[in-house]
């Protein structure tokens, strides 16, 4: 229709004539959206239920027995980039905080003889030039609360300072820190969580 009436008046009339209908249509669509039940009423209620996550088979008769992410994760400290609730970081959970503040108390071992070691040692990574990015400060404590020494040493990271050729390329390819970060630990989009020490603050820090 629009093709046959190209003078401005006709176009205007065409648009104005349809405007109320478009508005009504949009209003109906939005109200139907608002009426949809939200899985969990929490500040971060955007976990996808298992039946709709594209992985689980919705026809599985026992799918109802499995826990949905929102049921558990909505109770843990939220991890949201800045204050934007729409932005998403990993599971939307600050796992280190959840552990430290007692929201969760996951088992440390199955075999009674397994030794639990938590090491409180920060290492500043100074071997590589990080360019304009702040330097990386690696905290052993947060890592050893979850992991065993042997998970990283000596095969993935050498204990000797500066002996491991860590690079962002390798990390982005899933090596070194990228074994976990980018797969299960907070994603590699969160640069500032590792690159946390501005140049001005570097002098007194412990050297690698």
């Amino acid at each position: 229709m629009l093709l046959f009436c190209w003078n401005i008046k006709d176009v205007k009339r065409y648009i104005v004539g349809r405007l109320p209908a478009v508005c009504i249509g949009l209003c109906i669509a939005l109200s139907s959206l608002a009426a949809e039940p939200v899985p969990v009423a929490s500040p971060h209620s955007n976990w996808v239920p298992l039946a709709q996550d594209g992985l689980h088979d919705p026809s599985n008769p026992r799918l109802d027995l499995l826990q949905n992410p929102a049921e558990a994760l909505s109770l843990l400290p939220p991890d949201l980039e800045g204050n934007e609730r729409s932005s998403v970081v990993g599971n939307r959970v600050k796992w280190v905080k959840a552990l430290r503040e007692g929201y969760i108390n996951p088992r440390t071992n199955i075999y009674p003889e397994t030794k639990i070691k938590v090491l409180d040692l920060d290492v500043m990574l100074t071997k590589r030039d990080t360019g304009e990015l702040p330097r990386v400060l690696f905290p052993h404590k947060q890592h050893t609360e979850w992991l065993d020494c042997s998970n990283c040493h000596e095969w993935l990271f050498k204990s000797k300072t500066g002996a491991t050729p860590i690079s962002m390329f390798a990390i982005l390819d899933g090596e070194y820190c990228g074994r976990c970060h980018g797969a299960v630990a907070f994603p590699l989009t969160q640069c500032q969580r590792c690159h946390s020490v501005p140049f001005a603050a570097q002098a007194p820090a412990k050297a690698q």
């Binding site: 826990q67 992410p69 558990a72 994760l73 843990l76 599971n91 959970v93 796992w95 969760i104 996951p106 088992r107 440390t108 071992n109 199955i110 075999y111 397994t114 609360e145 979850w146 992991l147 065993d148 042997s150 998970n151 976990c180 299960v184």
Partner: peptide, 18 residues
């Protein structure tokens, strides 16, 4: 699901002990 398991177990249980 990693999320489900890490609420109940630390990484090292599966990635070290098991």
């Amino acid at each position: 699901p990693h999320w489900f398991h890490r609420i109940r177990f630390r990484c090292k249980v599966c990635h070290s002990e098991l």
